[in-house]
Amino acid sequence: MLRRQHATAATLQKYRDAPFDWAAGKTCLHMARFHLRQMGHRPEGLPRIRSAIGARRALDVRGWANVGDMLDTILPRIAPAQMRLGDVAMLDSGDGFGAIVISLGGKVMGWHEGYPGMTALEPIAIAGAWRA
């Protein structure tokens, strides 16, 4: 549990209040990769994604409909009710990619259109969850 606390704190520190920015690599995919590395995982290197079009191409090349399909290749899927601090979830998004968020224990951290930077959110509908 201590590793989960440290990894989640490090991810929060790095991305808190950072605005979502394709060009700067401040996306939910980059946040998830950083977080998983903090948790001791060694996810594959990310393709150089600097736009929504590039992200769609990267998903399509691998046959993934959304980021949930990607997470299925890295982590074991769990029921959202089983989420612990530091686990990874996907929320539906308007662009069809899905939005990766990190569990804070009751809330999740991620980006949302209504906020200028990454923030803690109340997860209304979790589309999928994975044990990190």
Score class of each variant (00 low, 15 high):
71 L>Y: 08
44 E>H: 11
70 M>F: 15
76 P>L: 05
49 I>A: 02
52 A>T: 10
53 I>R: 14
61 V>K: 15
48 R>M: 12
45 G>C: 09
37 R>E: 14
75 L>N: 07
42 R>D: 15
41 H>L: 09
37 R>L: 13
51 S>P: 07
47 P>W: 02
63 G>Y: 08
56 R>E: 09
50 R>A: 10
32 A>G: 03
36 L>V: 00
41 H>Q: 07
61 V>W: 15
76 P>G: 07
30 H>M: 08
40 G>C: 04
32 A>H: 01
42 R>K: 14
50 R>V: 10
42 R>C: 14
76 P>V: 04
60 D>K: 15
58 A>E: 04
37 R>D: 11
55 A>E: 00
39 M>A: 10
51 S>G: 01
44 E>S: 09
61 V>T: 15
34 F>T: 00
40 G>W: 05
46 L>F: 05
33 R>S: 11
61 V>Q: 15
78 I>C: 01
68 G>Q: 05
67 V>H: 15
73 T>G: 05
38 Q>K: 10
41 H>M: 06
70 M>V: 14
35 H>A: 03
78 I>G: 02
34 F>N: 02
67 V>L: 15
72 D>M: 07
73 T>F: 07
73 T>E: 07
35 H>E: 02
69 D>A: 07
34 F>A: 03
38 Q>P: 12
77 R>A: 06
68 G>L: 05
31 M>Q: 05
52 A>Y: 06
65 A>I: 09
49 I>F: 05
56 R>T: 06
63 G>I: 06
33 R>W: 10
46 L>S: 06
